[in-house]
Design a protein around this nucleic acid. Structure first.
Length: 677
DNA sequence: TTTAGGG
DNA sequence: CCCTAAA
């Protein structure tokens, strides 16, 4: 074990040295900049494989969800092996971070003015628990759905860690009190230093970089554990005479972030947990939340194309989101979408070498022709005749999107064909999908009729009930990006189709098909999933039963509609406001810790150091958060809102802020002097 | 791309 | 959180 040492320094009166920024060479690495590329276009057909039965008990939907968990677990696990680089990295990384909990917990952390703080221990334990729970329940969250899948790895790594294979320890609080880092790397590298921006020192930023040649390299950067294990050569690059080896804080911070996300954001691909959770959510709360999330100004409507046709809705490149009230479908930022989509957005854009026609496109509710959408098949159903209130549970085996006709020159490349098809899909999906219901070949249009009235609930034969996907603009206002929710369905009360539509899209959003690359996305998925139950919750009247029955469906894996690539660049006007994700206390802790060490002018480094794996936290976010933290610390406690931040943290915020402000002033003074002389 | 600040 | 001028 590494010797635990403590160095305490006061910072008053210290002449703080220039702290140069970290080498920009680090830029360009790291997950943030990673993008997926070279993926393939997915099939057009949407598979909604749900073993279907009609059940009378709403309870059954829960079971259905439970089944979904299993699937997902499996999927996650499978995917975790498939390993594109970023995924693999994440998967490995998080567990490693988990492994670091202990170390961090044991780290002796001098508090302000040299007082030791023990509160951290609890915090980290908590974080650890959260992780464990996550792994166990598969209810991953946050950008790190991978965490869920890597229990195995976690165990392995933890073991290594415990064996003291690798040990690095951070002993120290704010730099102004002196830090003591000791990194030991499998006997290959051992370095230690006592340094920190707050302390007087001759050097500038010193850094130690360890690079491995294995494919784990990405994590080597930050993972002492991986480092140790790696048989690859270890290169040590030292700038200046000292070494600054600080492998831990980042992980620890990250961990906190993860656990926090789990708790509060439930961002995840685990539909089960989300759904379950959402069932508990009061509809009004959901609605309020949604309202906040979608300021109208962010929902500019899609522009019209020259030919008067509406532009493909940008949702194509994102996940769909459905407002439980208007049932508008909202897109998610592509950034998140990328995490799930195998399709590169930077595919060079869509080419238009082919002519696409939609001969059967419906207009204003015209008949849905056969060409337009093969109906789905309903696996089986059963009818609870006896009571009106009975739930009707439907299993939709598959959906087919409208048939597309593509004309493309024989000389066109396969790639362009793909793009053309994709464009066609985009055009259709983009306009918003509408679900039609075919009962024995006949489409049911009256959305106000109950299932009983229409006879849907009495259908016994397979195939007698079908669902079709139609371009949404025919009957429903283009779902996404509209600011006129009232237009949807002409303001009619909730109806069957209105509930079904979201379902369709939901399928896409909940997407989790085996053999697929990891889903993981920072929160978007979760939100999507949250919506569905809230739909049920907020629905009124007898539409409720169907809705609930359908809500259970997403638990299974299906091909998402949302996985249609979309070139966001061509639709810049659709950039949506990000989901608000309040900082948790542990995130604040991580931030404070990082800022204490790095200062307030190096947000990128702060990000890299403490939030590297928190994709949803940008350096701008961190900067903003710091700003608000400082503000929060200055106002009286009763004026503060949101999750209360421990006073201790706020004190540190003020201290660090004061320190670095002064530091900055000094720097400016120095610079000025230098210029003058 | 980052930083720094206003909104 | 967003937007953006500046660097």
């Amino acid at each position: 074990m590494v010797l635990q040492r403590r160095l305490e320094y006061g910072f008053d009166g210290y002449q703080v040295p220039v702290v140069p920024r970290a080498s920009r060479s680090v830029r360009g690495r790291g997950p943030i900049r990673k993008k997926c590329d070279g993926n393939q276009i997915r099939a057009f057909e949407i598979l909604a494989c749900v073993a279907g039965n009609i059940l009378q008990e709403s309870e059954s939907s829960v079971q259905s969800n439970a089944a979904g968990v299993k699937d997902q677990n499996h999927i996650f696990y499978t995917n975790s092996k498939g390993g594109r680089e970023d995924e693999g990295r994440s998967i490995k990384k998080d567990p490693c971070e988990g492994g670091n909990f202990d170390e961090k917990s044991f780290a002796c952390v001098p508090g302000f003015k040299g007082h030791h703080k023990s509160y951290k221990l609890n915090e980290f334990c908590q974080a650890h628990d959260n992780i464990s729970h996550k792994v166990g329940s598969a209810s991953n969250a946050y950008d790190h759905s991978e965490v869920t899948c890597s229990a195995k790895k976690l165990a392995t790594i933890s073991r290594k860690n415990n064996c003291g294979y690798s040990s690095s320890r951070v002993v120290g609080g704010p730099p102004y009190f002196g830090d003591f880092y000791e990194g030991k790397v499998g006997g290959i590298l051992e370095s230690k230093l006592e340094d920190g921006p707050y302390r007087s020192r001759s050097g500038r930023d010193q850094s130690l970089t360890v690079a491995g040649s294995s494919e784990d390299q990405m994590e080597l950067d930050r993972e002492p554990l991986a480092l140790v294990d790696s048989e690859s050569d270890v290169k040590v690059t030292l700038s200046r005479d000292r070494v600054n080896f600080v492998p831990f804080p980042r992980h620890c911070d990250n961990i906190k972030v993860v656990s926090r996300d789990d708790d509060e954001n439930s961002v995840g691909c685990t539909q089960t947990s989300t759904i379950t959770k959402a069932y508990r959510s009061p509809p009004d709360i959901q609605q309020r939340r949604m309202k906040k999330l979608f300021p109208s100004r962010h929902w500019r409507k899609s522009q019209k194309l020259k030919d008067g046709k509406k532009k493909p809705i940008y949702c194509n490149g994102r996940n769909f989101r459905i407002d439980e009230r208007s049932q508008n479908i909202y897109p998610f930022k592509k950034r998140k979408f990328f995490n799930q989509s195998p399709i590169p957005a930077s595919d060079g854009g869509l080419h238009h070498e082919g002519v696409i026609n939609f001969p059967n496109k419906r207009i204003n509710g015209d008949n849905c022709s056969a060409a337009f959408g093969a109906s789905s098949s309903v696996a089986s159903q059963q009818v609870p005749h006896e009571s009106k209130g009975c739930d009707v549970k439907l299993s939709i085996k598959s959906f087919k999107v409208p048939e597309l006709f593509i004309e493309i020159p024989a000389t066109a490349t396969v790639g362009s064909l793909k793009r053309t098809v994709m464009e066609a899909v985009t055009a259709v999906l983009g306009d918003g999908l509408h679900v039609g219901i075919l009962l024995q070949g006949k489409e049911i249009r009256d959305d106000n009729k109950s299932l009983l009235q229409t006879g849907i609930s009495q259908v016994q034969k397979r195939h007698s009930l079908g669902f079709i996907l139609e371009p949404g603009h025919t009957q429903i206002t283009p779902p996404a990006c509209t600011e006129r929710p009232s237009m949807v369905s002409g303001g009619k009360p909730r109806s069957l189709s209105r509930h079904l539509a979201p379902l369709t899209l939901q399928l896409g959003a909940s997407y989790a098909s085996p053999g697929r690359q990891l889903l993981n996305s920072g929160g978007s998925v979760e939100r999507d999933l949250n919506i569905v139950p809230s739909l049920a919750d907020s629905s009124t009247g007898n539409a409720m039963p169907e809705t609930q029955a359908l809500v259970a469906v997403p638990a299974t894996s299906m091909e998402p509609l949302a996985v249609v690539p979309f070139d966001q660049k061509s639709h810049p006007e659709f950039v949506r406001r990000r989901i608000r994700r309040p900082f948790s206390v542990s995130e604040v802790e991580a931030l404070v810790q990082a800022v204490e060490k790095l200062g307030t002018g190096r947000w990128r480094d702060v990000k890299l150091r403490a939030f590297d794996s928190a994709k949803h936290r940008t350096y701008v976010d961190l900067k903003d958060k710091w700003k608000t933290l400082v503000h929060t610390a200055r106002i009286s406690p009763h004026q503060r809102r949101g999750e209360p931040v421990p006073q201790e943290l706020l004190d540190r915020v003020l201290a660090a802020h004061a320190y670095w402000s002064q530091h900055q002033a000094r720097q400016q003074l120095k610079t000025a002097e230098a210029v003058c002389s």
